[in-house]
Structure formats: structure tokens, C-alpha cells
């Protein structure tokens, strides 16, 4: 019972972080067709910016300014980099962001060192909030939950209830038509790219001290973000949300399961000492996202909720 409750809580938080990280990428990908390889690098930049800002002021200022800074960096990358490569096709764009990921990694290593930085949870939030089945639950995790839900609500409101949101929604599905209607499509692209990066930055700010802030955090998150976007489907934030929650829950639940293949398929004659039989579900956890990615692409190329094929 306690395992289920804790896995549920942790899974939801991880899923929300994943969604915050990938919502921006879904927007960018649906609109511009660019799978931004460097998206997780912006997540990392968010964490590092917050760490530096927190060194001078406090966490709350970092919470606001770090994502804004990341958004500005993202907009600049779109304007002076990506836009130039656009003419050479999607593969060139993909390669550009691939190189950018290398570059951001190295710059972070030079500016902040090659090892993890001591980016901590602010003291106001560093206390056990409640006790469940003998284990304490840190307040900061609940804070992550609140921030994510607030961001989710804000995103929903902007996209569905404001004029800018409507234009973006239109550009998601009919970019050419939006252009013909006289909207400045390159500027919409730049804005969306910047906002998408800022969202990734926000995920970095609140995720960096929950997990670890080190130069490897981008590489670890990068492929999983793709999985969320592809599994969720093109042009669908709801799909991305579902995929993120699904991944978050599946990964945390898998860690908590002690069963091995032998326990599950013992009736087929699989012995616990054989190589396949001794594999536990827990050790499969990191593989689940990629299994989903490959299966979705082969069976249902438009993802869970997507409106068109990749």
C-alpha cells in the first residue's frame, strides 16, 4: 500500500516536470517541425541560471528571472541560428540543434565547472511537510506540484482564452494560412521558441535542486523529452501531458516492483537463475520510455492524441 501511495506521488511529480519540459518542445515541434535536440540543454541552463541568481539574491527572484533569461537565449538562438538553417530543411535544423547541445554543454562546463553545483532547496521550503507510513514527505516536492499545476493552468488559459493563443493554435495546424492572413510568422516562431525554452528553463529551476544540477543533466533528460513529444503526438498538448504522466508513473512504479521475469513467466519454464529470468522489472525502468517510442512510431505514428503523422 505505502509503495503505491509513494510511487503515485513521486510519479505525478516526475510526470509534471517532464510535461513542463516537453510542452515547449511540443509547441515548437508542431509549429516549426523542428525536433530541438538542445531543448534539454535549456532545461539545464535554467537550473544553472537559478543557481547563480540565487547566489546573489534569493530563490524567488531566481524563479522568475532564470526562465526569462533562458527564454531570451532561446529567442536569440532562433533568430540568429535556426532561421538561417531553415532553408536547408528539417534535417539541417535537427543537426544544428544537435551541435548546439554540444556547445551549451561545454559552455556550462567552463562557466560552472565540470562537477555538480550545490544548488539547494530554499530553506523556507526545506522541511518535512507530513508523515506517511513512517516516512517523511519533503515540502519542496509539493511546491513543485503547485508550480507545475499553476503553469499548466496559465498555459491552458493563454492558448485557449487569449488572442495570441488563438493565433498560436492556428499556426500549429495551418502555418501557411496564418502567414497569408498577414501575421508575422517568423516572429511567432521566435516567440514560441523563446517561450518553449523558458518553460524548459522553469522546469530546470524547480527540478535542478530536486534532482542534481550537473553538466550531465541535459544528456540524461534529452532523449526522454523526445519520447514524450512523439508519444503524445504532433500538435497536441493534451497528448504530451498524457504521455508525460504515463512515463512518470510507469518509471516510478517499475522501480518499486521487485518481481523478476522468472516470477512473471515462471509458468513458461523460465528459471530464476537464467539470464533472462533474473532481470527485474526495477532494472527495466530506464528502458520503458524508449520501448514506448519505438512501438508508437511503428504502430501508431501519429502518437496518442496527434492529429497528423510525424
Amino acid at each position: 500500500m505505502e509503495t503505491i501511495v509513494f510511487s503515485l506521488l513521486n510519479g505525478v511529480i516526475y510526470g509534471l516536470l517532464l510535461f513542463m519540459l516537453s510542452s515547449g518542445l511540443t509547441l515548437i515541434f508542431s509549429m516549426m517541425g523542428v525536433l530541438n535536440f538542445a531543448h534539454a540543454s535549456f532545461y539545464m541552463l535554467g537550473a544553472y541560471f537559478a543557481y547563480s541568481i540565487m547566489g546573489v539574491t534569493n530563490f524567488w527572484i531566481a524563479l522568475i528571472f532564470a526562465p526569462v533569461l533562458v527564454g531570451l537565449v532561446g529567442a536569440a538562438v532562433e533568430k540568429w541560428g535556426l532561421r538561417k538553417v531553415h532553408a536547408n530543411g528539417h534535417v539541417a535544423e535537427l543537426l544544428f540543434t544537435f551541435g548546439l547541445a554540444y556547445l551549451i554543454d561545454e559552455v556550462v562546463k567552463i562557466l560552472w565547472g565540470r562537477n555538480a553545483v550545490d544548488y539547494r532547496v530554499p530553506e523556507v521550503l526545506d522541511f518535512p511537510l507530513f508523515e506517511l507510513f513512517g516516512a517523511q514527505y519533503p515540502a519542496y516536492r509539493v511546491f513543485i506540484l503547485l508550480v507545475s499545476v499553476a503553469m499548466l493552468a496559465a498555459l491552458w488559459f493563454i492558448l485557449n482564452r487569449t488572442r495570441a493563443g488563438l493565433i498560436i493554435q492556428a499556426a500549429l495546424t495551418h502555418p501557411h494560412m496564418v502567414g497569408h492572413l498577414g501575421h508575422n510568422v517568423p516572429r511567432i516562431f521566435m516567440t514560441v521558441f523563446g517561450v518553449g525554452c523558458a518553460l524548459a528553463g522553469l522546469a530546470g529551476v524547480i527540478g535542478g535542486n530536486y534532482l542534481v544540477t550537473d553538466p550531465a543533466m541535459a544528456v540524461q533528460m534529452g532523449p526522454i523529452v523526445f519520447v514524450v513529444v512523439v508519444v503524445g503526438g504532433l500538435g497536441s498538448l493534451t497528448g504530451a501531458f498524457l504521455a508525460a504522466m504515463l512515463l512518470g508513473l510507469m518509471q516510478t512504479f517499475a522501480v518499486g516492483i521487485d518481481a523478476s521475469f522468472a516470477d512473471m513467466f515462471g509458468w513458461l519454464g523460465l528459471s530464476a537463475t537464467s539470464e533472462v529470468g533474473s532481470i527485474t522489472i526495477a532494472s527495466l525502468a530506464p528502458m520503458i520510455p524508449f520501448l514506448m517510442l519505438v512501438l508508437i512510431l511503428m504502430i501508431r505514428p501519429r502518437g496518442l492524441m496527434g492529429d497528423r503523422e510525424l
Binding site: 505505502e2 509503495t3 510511487s7 513521486n10 507510513f133 513512517g134 516516512a135 540524461q220 532494472s283 530506464p286
Partner: peptide, 20 residues
């Protein structure tokens, strides 16, 4: 219990198994 080398970022699930 054995966990992957250098790849686990959040040990809370493991700790909760220990506590229970």
C-alpha cells in the same frame, strides 16, 4: 538491492522501500 551505477538521480523510492 542493486541500482544502476551513477544513473539514479532520486533515491527516494529506494529509501521508502528501506523504511517499509
Amino acid at each position: 538491492e542493486l541500482h544502476p551505477l551513477g544513473r539514479v538521480k532520486d533515491f527516494t523510492p529506494y529509501i521508502q522501500k528501506i523504511i517499509s
